[in-house]
Design a protein around this nucleic acid. Structure first.
Length: 863
DNA sequence: ATACATACC
DNA sequence: TACTGGTATGTAT
């Protein structure tokens, strides 16, 4: 109510532009004066005009709704009422007041971090962001009406002394990690909503807490009041370590056994006062906030309630640095809700509020009173939500982060009208996106282009492919088509853009992400000579794109692509030169392959067939490490769709190549010793190294992964060695195709099996093949094998460093010195899963690769 | 499936 | 001078 309609009297104001003071720290402002300044700063701008337009659209919606309302009959109302009542009864029956949910929210987070690190800002109005847009403001600035989502230049008009500090997300992320550590102590399954807020289920913690000794609820104060500047920073550090010293003791499973008391008293006497927290929820939450403040020097606010919807509202109640508990009784909840302005509810924004207001609904009390009409005027999901709200219902359990559904990147810029610039912009976005896709090991089928013109009109254009994509070229191929179409539609007028964005969605099931495998593969791959296939078809260069005459390739037709650029043909022209974008390893390996495989490139057509069959079988296809102008297509995903190779796919998953278990492991990328025996940790390290090394290249292919079935198989006995090109073994040995891609299955008889002979998958006795030197190892002792691989990896680098030509590496355990092929190793599998899964209903996101995920990494190799 | 709108941080 | 960027979801077609 204190808000009412944002634009109280100022009739000419756009409600959507007016100050949104529905925010802590903004009570009692001179709204009219502030709105006047805001309007004066905006009036006449393109932005303003667009807002005006949108406001009108909303108004029309409202008019329409009112007309509808006017036509509602008694009968309809009656029916609706019955339905609502039934539903209320049912919801009431299922009301769950047994959980204790807490919503924690850092106060003016970014601003607080900046103030903490720069004391001069403390007593000044400040905000984080830029002249164009602010992310947040401190409470001092809020008094002037300066708030998040307001452009800096307007904020400056409201508050000329406002200090605007650029955002430093790295810092916020670090602080966020600190507070999350604390959250985890109270609820290991807490649900982070952003860097500065999270929902926690305190129920379990409270149960245990009841039996905790006082010592476990005792926390030491930190007296740092006299510190200033750098000193304060140091103190802060101390606080952090202190916190760390304390928490393990405090939160052990059996707190009673913790030696906390005696020890802390002594320490406490030396460093400051104690604070003992009780066993109630409020005390527990106070303790948590205390620890947060102690550890970060930042304050948090919290809300305690029986569900998330209420907890969220409660956390705002006593902000900043406060908390509010809503008792877990139906009565308390209903009372609370009655007085709750609808706008405070998460999910009800500016527009919904306005529509509800038009119906005379401003508080949740009205919501309940008008539910019948609302059920007739709003969509089912909408009114169901409103119904829950009116009853004070909300989620009572934390559902941990679901799988990501989309990934996007967008950029606002000055005004771009030239087609070439638009295309190169688009390409840049695709590059960024591809990089992110790679980081997350994702592939998606829908590419969406977003455009905003200088009048702030937004347009989105989507294209759904029949196969999942992830590389720059694939994404760009689609985005560019979409862009081109828009350009054509507008011509002869140019598109006058102020923003462009690219999004990918419709991800393929993610269980088949084998991060490390891919990583290591990419890493071992020679520069991908092949797929870079710069030349044809799909590979249009930027220049080509700029050519108005260019024809776009019909989107979404994998078969066509395959014809144009058959798999495995990429070698044409096998790149002899070095790819500047290759990783060090790739270059090293490529060089060696080059030397060893002398003239092996010419016959691509010759083996094209085999190559494609095999690759589709589960080979990992590397995406071209093309220079910026080339485009590669046909990635593993294309091939993975080929059902004909399914049989092989089943066999494609390889078992790990063995693993070592030693005190420390040597990272094949940085060669540093990783002090751990935990493969997950090790894998993470390698992933990090790999991603650091590959930052720009995008050279790693994204291979598909194996299905669960494969994973099982893969624990068995066969190995799949795959490289970018398939070469029958005979040829391989007799010719120098060695450097071409191959994909072979090797069974116990040491026989190379191509995808045409999938049956050999069940081969007994496994044969391990070094992914680096490609030599078959006769020992199947994984430890020995790993040692060999390590040596090979090192050797590889030494060669590169020494600029030597590589020669067969003779290492212990390499027997059978039969070079199988010099392709790469591909532990995996490529896509198997996909083909299979595709036939059956897509796996519900829920199954999240339990247990599959983590194991996709290097442990396949080094286990 | 596509486009656009709304919402949240 | 200057009005974000990322993700999810709902609404409508």
């Amino acid at each position: 109510m204190e808000n009412g309609v944002a634009s109280t009297k100022a009739e000419g104001f756009l409600s959507r532009m007016a100050l949104n003071d529905n925010k802590a720290g903004m009570e009692g402002l001179d709204r009219d004066k502030i709105n006047k300044i805001i309007m004066e700063s905006s009036k006449g701008s393109r932005f303003y005009e667009n807002e005006l337009k949108r406001e009108q659209q909303v108004n029309q919606r409202i008019v329409k709704m009112m007309l509808q309302k006017a036509q509602i009959t008694e009968q309809q109302l009656k029916t609706a009422q019955a339905q609502v009542e039934r539903m209320v009864a049912e919801l009431e029956r299922s009301r769950d007041l047994s959980r204790v949910i807490v919503h924690v929210d850092m106060d003016a987070f970014y601003a607080a971090v900046e103030m903490r690190d720069c004391p001069e800002l403390k007593d000044k109005p400040m905000a984080v962001g830029s002249m164009s847009m602010l992310s947040t403001s401190n409470y001092h600035a809020r008094k002037y009406g300066v708030r998040a989502a307001m452009p800096g230049f307007i904020a400056k008009k409201l508050c000329p002394n406002l200090v605007i500090v650029p955002a430093n997300f790295g810092k916020y992320r670090a602080v966020s990690a600190e507070i999350r550590e604390i959250f985890a102590d109270y609820d290991p399954h807490f649900q982070p909503m952003s860097l500065d807020e999270a929902y926690l289920d305190f129920t379990e913690h409270l149960e245990q807490r009841q039996s905790w000794p006082e010592s476990s609820r005792t926390h030491r104060f930190h007296s740092s009041s006299s510190a200033t500047g750098e000193e304060q920073v140091e103190l802060h550090q101390e606080a952090v370590s202190e916190e760390r010293d304390i928490s393990p003791v405090l939160f052990e499973d059996s707190p009673s056994s913790s030696p906390c008391l005696s020890g802390s008293e002594a320490v406490g006497a030396a460093c400051g006062a104690f604070e003992v927290f009780g066993t109630s929820v409020e005390e527990a939450v106070r303790e948590m906030r205390f620890r947060i403040e102690h550890k970060t020097t930042l304050t948090a606010s919290a809300g305690i309630a029986p569900n998330t919807m209420l907890a969220k509202v409660c956390s705002d109640k006593n902000k900043p640095n406060g908390q509010y508990r809503l008792p877990s009784t139906r009565e308390a909840v209903m009372d609370f809700v009655q007085n709750l302005p609808v706008r405070k509810v998460c999910g009800i924004g500016k527009v919904s509020e306005k529509m509800l207001n038009a119906l005379g609904v401003s508080s949740c009390l009205h919501l309940g009173q008008q539910m019948e009409s609302l059920s007739l005027l709003f969509s089912e999901t909408a009114w169901h939500h409103l119904m829950h709200v009116s009853l004070g219902l909300g989620s009572t359990r934390m559902h941990r982060h679901e799988e990501r559904k989309s990934l996007s990147t967008e950029r606002t810029f000055k005004e771009v009208c030239k087609v070439e610039e638009q295309l190169s912009l688009c390409r840049e976005l695709c590059e960024d996106l591809a990089e992110d896709m790679k980081k997350e090991e994702l592939k998606g089928k829908t590419v969406t282009l977003k455009l905003k013109n200088v009048n702030f009109e937004v347009k989105t254009r989507a294209l759904t492919l029949s196969y999942a994509v992830a590389t720059v070229d694939e994404i760009f191929a689609a985005a560019k088509d979409l862009l081109k179409t828009e350009i054509d539609n507008e011509s002869p007028q140019p598109l006058r853009l102020r923003l462009m964005g690219v999004r990918i969605s419709a991800f393929v099931s993610s269980e088949d992400k084998k991060p490390l495998q891919r990583s290591i593969i990419g890493f071992l791959q020679p520069g991908k000579t092949d797929s870079s296939d710069s030349s044809r078809g799909m590979h249009q260069t930027l220049e080509d794109l700029s050519d108005p005459s260019f024809q776009t390739v019909p989107p979404a037709c994998p078969p066509q692509r395959r014809e144009e650029v058959p798999w495995g043909r990429g070698l044409e022209g096998g790149r002899t030169g070095e790819e500047p974008k290759q990783s060090f390893f790739q270059r090293a390996h490529a060089k060696r392959l080059q030397l060893q495989a002398a003239n092996a490139r010419t016959q691509e057509e010759g083996h094209g067939e085999d190559a494609s069959v095999i690759t589709s079988a589960g080979a990992y296809v590397e995406k071209g490490v093309e220079s910026s102008t080339t485009e590669s297509n046909c990635t593993a995903s294309d091939l993975s769709e080929n059902d004909s190779v399914a049989p092989v796919e089943a066999c494609a998953s390889t078992s790990g190549c063995g693993g070592t278990v030693s005190e420390s492991l040597t990272c094949p990328v940085c060669f540093g010793q990783v002090e751990t025996t935990d493969l997950n940790v090790f894998n993470r390290h390698i992933d990090q190294c790999l991603s650091d090394a590959s930052r720009k290249p995008n050279q790693w292919a994204i291979s598909d992964t194996e299905s669960d079935l494969d994973l099982e198989n893969d624990r068995k006995d066969f190995e799949v060695v795959q490289s970018s090109r398939v070469v029958p073994q005979e040829d391989q040995r007799s010719s120098e195709n060695a450097s071409l891609q191959t994909n072979v299955l090797i069974n116990g008889d040491n026989k190379t099996v191509t995808s045409r002979q999938p049956q050999s998958c069940d081969g007994r006795g496994r044969v391990l093949i070094c992914p680096v030197c490609q030599l078959t190892q006769d020992s199947d002792d994984l430890t020995i094998f790993n040692r060999h691989v390590d040596l090979c990896l090192n050797q590889e680098v030494l060669h590169e460093l020494g600029g030597q030509t590589s020669s067969p590496i003779n290492l212990p355990s390499v027997i059978n010195g039969k070079a199988i092929d010099r392709g790469r190793l591909l532990p995996t599998l490529a896509s198997k899963g996909k083909t299979k899964r595709r036939d059956s209903p897509p796996p519900p996101p829920s199954k999240k690769a339990k247990g599959l995920g983590p194991r996709n990494t290097i442990d396949k190799f080094f286990r």
